[in-house]
Every structure is written in structure tokens, then in C-alpha cells.
């Protein structure tokens, strides 16, 4: 299935399969979503109940703020954003210029694995598109 948004086209099936692979490979990843940089959900996989629909637009806002802060500080490119919470982590990173990956873990000791798996997932989606 192709999701076309006025000039931008995404192969949702390919993205979904890559998100699914990431969740299968990484036990601590509870949900993964690909969202456009302007806040539309393209694809999501939830290993456990973890509503990510509203996270799409919030994720794009956060990533944009991360990019803006990084540019303001002249620190190169914002590679990823990590939100550490009382009950787990949220990781955001660019897949490519127009796509963002959002991953979620409720495991408090999972950060390294979550970031590492998210990077592999983003790279595999980038190569597949």
C-alpha cells in the first residue's frame, strides 16, 4: 500500500514490515511508529497496548524542536532525542529528511538496547525506501 500525501509517497507495507522486524528483534521495544516530519502517522506496530496515534504529531514537534535547538547551538545534526520517564523511554530519530522514527519502551533498563535497535530500524527503512 502506498500512502500518498500530496507529492510525498510512502510505501507503508515496507515500513510496517521493518517496524515489525525491529519489535521482533528487540524484546524491550513496546511500540514503533514512522511519522512524517509534519506530524502524520505513516505506520505503527504495537507489541503491547501503547497508543501512539497522538504521539505522531507530538513526535514531529519534538524532533523539530531538537533540530532547531541543535542548529541554534551550531552542534551539527540532531541525531536522536531521548525522553527518560519514570516508566520507560521514548526515542525519536530521523529516518530520512521527511520521516521520523518513534520507539517506546516501558523497561527502565532498556535505553541502550532501545537506541541501538531504533538506529538499526531507521537504517533498514532508509535502505528499503
Amino acid at each position: 500500500m502506498l500512502l500518498k500525501k500530496s507529492g510525498t509517497q510512502f510505501n507503508v507495507d515496507v515500513i510496517k514490515s521493518k517496524l515489525s522486524e525491529a519489535i521482533d528483534r528487540c524484546d524491550v521495544m513496546d511500540a514503533a511508529a514512522a511519522v512524517t516530519i509534519d506530524g502524520h502517522l505513516v505506520a505503527k506496530i504495537e507489541a503491547r497496548d501503547c497508543p501512539v496515534n497522538r504521539i505522531a504529531s507530538m513526535g514531529s514537534s519534538m524532533m523539530s524542536l531538537g533540530d532547531t535547538m541543535t542548529a541554534e547551538l551550531k552542534m551539527g545534526v540532531c541525531r536522536n532525542l531521548i525522553v527518560e520517564n519514570e516508566r520507560g523511554f521514548l526515542v525519536l530519530m530521523h529516518i530520512r529528511d521527511d520521516l521520523i522514527l518513534v520507539t517506546i519502551s516501558h523497561d527502565k533498563s532498556s535505553l541502550g538496547m532501545l537506541v541501538s535497535s531504533s538506529k538499526i530500524c531507521a537504517e533498514s527503512i532508509r535502505k528499503a525506501l
Binding site: S6, G7, T8, I37, D38, H40, S61, S64, T68, D98
Partner: peptide, 23 residues
């Protein structure tokens, strides 16, 4: 101005190239 505008991927591109997504 600190801007958080990105390229629009939806019908907004018919109006303008970029759109504000945080502030």
C-alpha cells in the same frame, strides 16, 4: 525568530512550502 518549520507532506504544500509544527 526561532522557527520550527518543516516541509509539508500534505495538502498544505498547495498553500506554502513549509509549516510550523511546534512554535
Amino acid at each position: 525568530v526561532l522557527k520550527t518549520d518543516v516541509q509539508a507532506t500534505d495538502e498544505v504544500v498547495d498553500l506554502k512550502d513549509s509549516t510550523t509544527i511546534a512554535m
